[in-house]
């Protein structure tokens, strides 16, 4: 009987622990879904800041998950596109870099993180291209090349590079003609790509298609 009791207690503890963990997982998933909903519904810069804050809060609790910080950074990246003042843009992009840096510490071998880091680095250059182009391009390209190396199937680093080429003046080696083959390659990668679950990054496809259409 005593032994039974012991087994029961252990079983119960295991069940309890599992249920707490499950509850935590469930809470995390629920919180992420909620935040992704805010992100998808966001329209203004303030909406993206709120979404970023929401993701960052989740990152503070779910300490082993890289996705919250990843989305927090990505939300700030989009927030940046709604701003005009270069100082504000810089502050927001610095925050985005800090957030993606936190994701990087949690999962350094994740290609998605490096693709986003490269994207943010490009955006930093665009704040003051004349001044930052020369020293910043190599660094940004390095992150994107690393993203490709970690996961050659991930379409996002290809898309980010193609988009950068699209917006670079022809005189500096960019333009539609130079971007077209890159966008086409990215489009193929997007066709083949399936995110492993519904929370994983899955952005860029529409924009890539839009830019490609503009090249024709």
């Amino acid at each position: 009987m005593k032994k039974d009791l012991k087994t029961t207690i252990i079983t119960l503890i295991v069940i309890l622990f599992a249920s707490v963990t499950n509850a935590q997982d469930a809470k995390y998933v629920a919180a992420m879904k909620n935040a992704l909903q805010s992100f998808n519904d966001a329209k203004t810069g303030a909406d993206y800041v709120a979404a970023s804050n929401q993701f960052e809060r989740i990152g503070g609790i779910a300490k082993t998950e890289w996705l919250p910080y990843y989305y927090a950074a990505y939300s700030q990246l989009i927030n940046n596109t709604t701003l005009q003042d270069p100082n504000e843009k810089d502050a927001v992009l610095d925050k985005a870099l800090e957030l993606v840096g936190k994701a990087e510490i949690l999962k350094p071998a994740e290609g998605e993180i490096w693709a986003l880091k490269g994207y943010i680095s490009f955006m930093k250059i665009y704040v003051n291209p004349m001044a930052r182009m020369q020293n910043g391009m190599g660094e940004a390209m390095g992150y994107l090349e690393k993203a490709k190396a970690l996961n050659p199937e991930n379409p996002r680093p290809y898309f980010v590079i193609a988009q950068n080429t699209f917006y670079t003046p022809e005189a500096f080696g960019g333009g539609k003609d130079a971007a077209k083959p890159l966008l086409t390659e990215a489009a193929k990668k997007f066709e083949a790509f399936k995110p492993t679950n519904e929370m994983m990054p899955d952005w860029g496809k529409e924009r890539n298609a839009m830019l490609l259409a503009d090249c024709k």
């Binding site: 303030a46 800041v49 709120a50 804050n53 929401q54 503070g60």
Partner: peptide, 19 residues
């Protein structure tokens, strides 16, 4: 101040300030 992240420490509860 808008865009301030406000939360209860060690919980998922929180929000952001409006404009």
């Amino acid at each position: 101040i808008s865009g301030v992240s406000i939360s209860i420490k060690d919980s998922y509860d929180g929000t952001s300030s409006d404009s």
